[in-house]
């Protein structure tokens, strides 16, 4: 099955892309997807981010389904100056 992975901010620049289609096995969890991704993008290994699946925060244990949109979410910093 295939999932879409979206990268934002620092991770978008690191990976050089905004999104990527990734082929994974049926029943793959978020953690397993990340492991697979970090082979292609070693920068993702530091885990300084959260994950969203279909625009909602998700756990590492969450199983994925075909067509899911998985987003790598760096710590947010919107609003006015910190």
């Amino acid at each position: 099955m295939q999932v879409k992975v979206r990268f934002f901010a620092r991770y978008r620049e690191m990976t050089g892309q905004g999104e990527s289609a990734v082929e994974v096995e049926e029943g793959t969890t978020v953690a397993q997807l990340l492991k697979k991704l970090s082979l292609g993008f070693p920068e993702l290994d530091n885990r300084h981010f959260l994950i969203a699946v279909n625009a909602e925060y998700a756990t590492l244990e969450q199983p994925l389904r075909h067509g899911d949109e998985v987003a790598i979410i760096p710590p947010v910093s919107g609003g006015e100056g910190v």
Partner: peptide, 9 residues
Amino acid sequence: LKEIVPIWK
């Protein structure tokens, strides 16, 4: 907003 809204600067 600074905790949960995925916006970066």
